[in-house]
Design a protein around this nucleic acid. Structure first.
Lengths: 349, 349
DNA sequence: GTTAGCACTCATCTGTATCGAGTGCTAACA
DNA sequence: TGTTAGCACTCGATACAGATGAGTGCTAAC
């Protein structure tokens, strides 16, 4: 285990390196008023910390930078959690959640924008999860003889739509009948059970109501696809190009993989959802701790927001390993709380 | 006016520079079999072309590169339009439009993906325009006592939805009545006239039907906002990070503004829509010809796709000024044709 | 255990020399 | 008059050599 003094020094190295992105030398630490030791003593301690794996040296005559293990120890034991938010931050958050919400998705989008704006990193907001949401309404609006729009509305207010074409043997009237049938039977069913429920309960119903069984099933399949795609909640990205502001990504070679990975929202959503489903309220992945190869030069911090005891959605920040962990954690905390409150106000009254 | 030989040389310089991104010297051109002249003669011609403003020299002892004017002359007079597409390209496009379409938006998204994949530039696809689209259906699905989802479906199959909260004085029943009223009156109205139509025709109707006039208007305003946001068609981006593949954007300083600009789809959509509305089927903006400051280091090529004689949507490619114009134009041509055909098949039968 | 002193390391900076691609110009040639 | 060979010249790119200085590890004294 580390001595108090070693921990103090480690904390200083991390704080300083996060701020300046320059390897921290013994002199710099020695100057710090919190410590009354000479540079030589610091050097000894730093050598020890390096041997223990918490620090590393880019080259012989440079200062030290935190290793992955160093960051890990920092976030686990050394981080100063309190009073990290400036009044400006608090204001931004307050104004975001303070205004009257009548456009739920806009809030999620804005959360992403503000979170990336305040952190200068990339942010991701996953819309409300589906654990508790049920099917509210299924509708079909005809467009032409062969096309129509299928609409799916869930109890959480999410909407999915898709233009579908009718298979040859099926008329508009029949498909409307089919949709009405589905509506009656499936309303209130949890979203994640729809597919199985629909298939087992309805296939024989359909054979009774519809003349052309085969074709009806094909249409049914289209509709289920729409419902399924609703089950995957929406992904909002903020400040993807903030990545380029970070000195570690000034080299395009480094930045391209991450930017490209971020380009596909579904991938990003999948990754974050997995993080969020671990059960912890806050999850921190530092560098190589990330499973995704493209993110091994990054740190990812995720927080879940919820209503009551149900995990409900995920928000996260993606930035360089050299990240201001304390600040990001505080912001995520405040924002997830804000989202939780907002959804609570919206659905439980 | 340029002589034939000057034009030939200009074309060669552009072709060569587009391929290699290296200033083209007189020797390189002289080697070309299509020309039997010595390097010295080429040098004279190149000096003339530079004087005329078609070429420029990065520095005294370097080869020439095309100026903005040079590119302009190239695309106006020198470009080889035909047989630019390889069989692979044609296959990709065929397979995109060949498959049975039952998810219209997916096709637009895929168009963007394939277009950026084939060009290695960034692509933008604007969904069908609204000139001819009318309101098909307006629906409201209640979620709780105070919230509901408003759905707008247009004749072109576009759907917009928004969760709205009811103002204090208005009940669910009343809002349903309001929506039904709107539905009856506005169905078939062109989208761009909805706002004015609604306001002038309905405000007095509402005062008769609804108890609380003020509050009803507020709800109405929310609904109109939903409809308005539908009038702005959807924007699909492909390969935004392809920008980083281009050597001219290897420097993060150069890339960041463009990437950041691309991040806001509505901005991108606005810009492209303006291009598309000029009336020309194909529009090419080279470097400084772009109005948007962030794009002055880029070239933007847009093409409209249509059904019958109605302009319907826009697709475009954004890349460095040093762009393979011939290929991009051919691809845009093929893709806009494909989209036109697809929408024709979908709506006019 | 702490500290001052010192030799050592090594990335970075700066100045210089070299190289070579490409030019413009001139004079000779068809 | 148009074309070409020859040549001096320009200037970015590359390579190399010191010089600089931040920072280290080690030793010996406190």
């Amino acid at each position: 285990m580390l001595t108090d003094r070693q921990m103090l020094i480690l904390r200083m190295v991390v704080d300083d390196y996060v701020r300046s992105m320059e390897p921290v030398g013994s002199r710099t630490i020695a100057k710090h008023p919190e410590l009354t030791l000479s540079a030589a003593t610091i050097r000894n301690e730093m050598a020890d910390l390096e041997e223990l794996g918490y620090l590393e040296q880019p080259h012989t005559s440079a200062g030290r930078i935190p290793s992955q293990l160093g960051y890990r120890f920092y976030v686990d034991h050394l981080i100063k959690m309190h009073s990290k938010l400036s009044p400006t931050d608090v204001d931004s958050i307050k104004s975001l959640f303070g205004e009257r919400v009548n456009e739920v998705e806009r809030v999620a989008q804005q959360t992403a924008v503000i979170l990336s704006g305040l952190t200068q990193y990339t942010s991701v907001v996953l819309g409300p999860q589906v654990y508790e949401t049920t099917l509210r309404s299924l509708q079909i609006v005809p467009l032409s003889d062969h096309t129509a729009v299928v609409l799916v509305v869930t109890s959480s207010g999410q909407v999915q739509n898709r233009t579908v074409t009718f298979p040859e043997g099926i008329s508009l009237r029949e498909s409307q009948r089919l949709v009405k049938l589905l509506n009656d039977r499936l309303q209130g069913t949890p979203m994640y059970r729809i597919r199985s429920r629909m298939m087992e309960e309805l296939s024989r119903e359909i054979s009774r109501h519809m003349e052309d069984y085969e074709e009806a099933l094909r249409l049914l399949d289209q509709i289920v696809t729409v419902i399924d795609s609703e089950a995957t909640e929406k992904v909002f990205l903020g400040g993807a190009t903030n990545m380029l502001l970070q000195p570690e990504f000034r080299d395009v070679q480094k930045a391209t993989p991450v930017l490209t990975w971020l380009e596909h929202k579904d991938r990003v959503g999948d990754a974050l959802r997995e993080e969020g489903s671990s059960g912890d309220k806050l999850k921190i992945r530092i560098g190589g701790e990330n499973d995704i190869a493209m993110l091994q030069g990054c740190s990812v911090i995720t927080a879940t927001y919820q209503v009551g005891d149900n995990p409900f959605g995920v928000i996260g920040v993606i930035g360089p390993t050299r990240m201001d962990y304390g600040r990001v954690i505080a912001l995520l905390d405040a924002m997830s709380q804000g989202l939780s409150d907002m959804y609570a106000r919206l659905y439980k009254t």
